[in-house]
Design a protein around this nucleic acid. Structure first.
Lengths: 228, 228
DNA sequence: CAATCTCTTTGACTTATGTCAAAGCGCTTT
DNA sequence: AAAGCGCTTTGACATAAGTCAAAGAGATTG
């Protein structure tokens, strides 16, 4: 119980709340652990609450009839997911699976809504949370519709690089999963990485990628394509 | 003033509020009219509030460096937009332009946040609103990534048909705009409509489209492609 | 340490969709 | 009705990206 409060206190969604609120949140939530690859829910399932990642990683994705998948979001520690069906009352809009061994807090719908009704700060935090997610989705739509795969890849490499600081980047997902994240397939991703490598934009060593020509990569990200 | 209250009362975002709340909302908002094609804001602009459509139509979209546009959403009467930057404090994530002559209500950020803090119902309505928008975006991402243009078009035709009831559908946007909505260009859309016409799936007469083979169209929407 | 299994890469090929250019069509304006 | 204008359609072509198949690389396990 006390350690759950500790976990909750650090989350952006719960920033600025009173001690009493932390306790109330800790009282309504349930901690659950999952092995890698476990399914949390499937599109259409009735949503009885939402989740927050304590440790690990959760993949939210859509699947086509042929089995191709598009990752909508990868959520890590401190991030929450599954709120949409809490507030609309409809089923989940996508599938969720753990990408690695994962610990989650589950917040039941009705109890959480009751808390929100009593605490405007919590409500505003949640509104900020969903707004951020909308911004992210708008970016994904832009990328899928207006950029080619090299452009999306370049943007992702720069994103990784910005998180780390230096010019050496370690992919935080398998290349297959990265393909799903970028809206393509492994073969295509592989070819484009090879092309960037040949042109001296990057130096490929497995999951380690060195950004050799940052300006060139930035241009590809901006223009959305790699001039042939 | 009184007529603004009347307009507000009917909006889903404001459902279930007290008379006093309607009056407070009416007090903080400003009504503004725009001619067709006027720009309301541009991506990156600081958001000082959000808008609600009274009459007319607003197009929210992204543009690529080459000038191709992807429509994120078309908002009509009773729908609101621009909330994202209200709750994150960052700039608008996309561009907004009126698609026709349009009347809007503008709600200033700080005044509205103050109201939300006092009224949990308003907060929950807004959460439902944003959640619905996330669901819509998830669907758009799915379509762009996992369906081909015929699949997206079929889905849109069925959507129009479901709104109307019968098998005769009138496009509510120009074909050029429909292309932007579906993530393609006018030439491609034109070809695919012609192909569906040739195959007896639809009967094309300008902006009037008759759905002749609903089952066939549903299959294309589901599979995401038109088997050649 | 070999065997196996999965993930990744490469090659040859197909195809959906974009590009560019021109023609067609409908609508408004004079 | 003629003229002009924007939107739509069609054609010829280019190309990004998917499919299928096989080889290669890396990791895991017995």
């Amino acid at each position: 119980m006390v350690d759950i409060i500790g976990q909750i206190a650090g989350m952006p969604l719960f920033a600025g709340l009173s001690k009493a609120q932390y306790e109330a949140l800790a009282r309504i939530c349930v901690r659950r652990s999952f092995r890698k690859g476990e399914r949390l829910f499937t599109e259409g399932d009735e949503g009885t609450g939402f989740y927050m990642v304590v440790t690990g990683r959760v993949k939210i994705f859509k699947v086509s009839v042929e089995g191709k998948e598009q990752i909508l979001h990868l959520f890590g520690p401190g991030e929450s997911f599954g709120e949409v069906s809490v507030f609309t009352g409809q089923g989940f809009p996508a599938d969720a699976v753990t990408a690695v061994q994962t610990a989650l807090l589950f917040f039941p719908r009705l109890a959480f809504v009751a808390l929100i009704q009593k605490d405007p700060t919590l409500a505003l935090n949640m509104l900020a949370q969903l707004s951020g997610r909308l911004r992210h989705f708008a970016g994904l739509i832009e990328d899928l519709s207006l950029k080619e795969v090299p452009g999306r890849l370049a943007k992702y490499l720069l994103y990784l690089s910005d998180r780390k600081g230096d010019g050496e980047v370690a992919l935080d997902v398998s290349k297959g999963q990265l393909a799903s994240l970028l809206g393509t397939i492994p073969e295509t991703l592989s070819r484009i990485l090879a092309r960037m490598n040949r042109r001296g934009l990057i130096r490929l060593r497995g999951a380690q990628i060195q950004l050799l020509d940052r300006a060139g990569i930035e241009q590809i990200a901006l223009e959305g394509k790699m001039l042939s």
